[in-house]
Amino acid sequence: MLHLAANYLLYRLRAFKLHGVHSPFVFELYQNVILHEGDYYAYSLIEDLRSSLLTEDRAIPVTDFGAGPKAGLKNNRKISYIARTSAKPAKYAQLLFRLVAHFQPATIFDLGTSLGITTSYLAKANKQAKVYTFEGCPSIAAEAKSNFEKLGLPNVQQVIGNLDDTLPQQLQLVEQLDFVFFDGNHRYEPTMRYFEACLGKHHEHSVFVVDDLYWSAEMKRAWQEIKRHPQVCQTVDLFYIGLVFFRKTQPKEHFTLLY
Rank of each mutant, 00 (worst) to 15 (best):
D237Y: 02
G136C: 07
R98P: 03
K150Q: 13
H3C: 07
Y214D: 07
S206K: 08
S80M: 11
R193C: 04
M1Y: 03
L4W: 05
H203D: 09
L115D: 06
Y188P: 10
I82G: 02
D211Y: 03
R193A: 15
D211P: 06
T118D: 10
K91C: 00
A93L: 03
L213Y: 10
K78Q: 15
E175T: 15
L95N: 06
M192W: 03
A6F: 14
M219N: 06
L115K: 03
D164E: 04
S80N: 12
S52K: 13
A222G: 08
I46M: 10
A87V: 12
L173C: 05
G200M: 12
Q250K: 08
L213K: 10
R228V: 00
L199D: 05
T249R: 13
S216T: 15
P69K: 15
Q157V: 15
V21T: 00
L54E: 12
V26T: 05
Y240F: 13
K74S: 15
F109R: 05
N155G: 14
A6V: 11
V207D: 04
G136N: 05
R193K: 13
Y43W: 07
G200I: 07
F103S: 13
V131F: 01
F65G: 01
F103E: 11
K127R: 15
L153E: 12
Q169C: 04
F134I: 08
W223T: 03
L10S: 13
T119Q: 04
E225N: 12
D237T: 02
E204A: 13
L177K: 05
H205R: 10
G242F: 04
L4A: 08
Q172N: 13
D64Y: 06
N32D: 09
A141C: 09
A5V: 15
S206E: 05
G136W: 03
R12T: 11
A222S: 12
Y194P: 06
F208C: 11
A67P: 01
R193W: 01
Q169P: 00
S80I: 02
H19G: 06
L53H: 03
L111P: 11
A6R: 13
R187C: 07
T133D: 04
A197F: 02
G112E: 11
P105G: 08
H36V: 01
G200V: 12
P89L: 09
L4P: 00
K17G: 09
T55V: 11
Y240W: 04
F239V: 11
G200H: 09
N126Q: 12
I34Q: 08
F208K: 06
R14L: 09
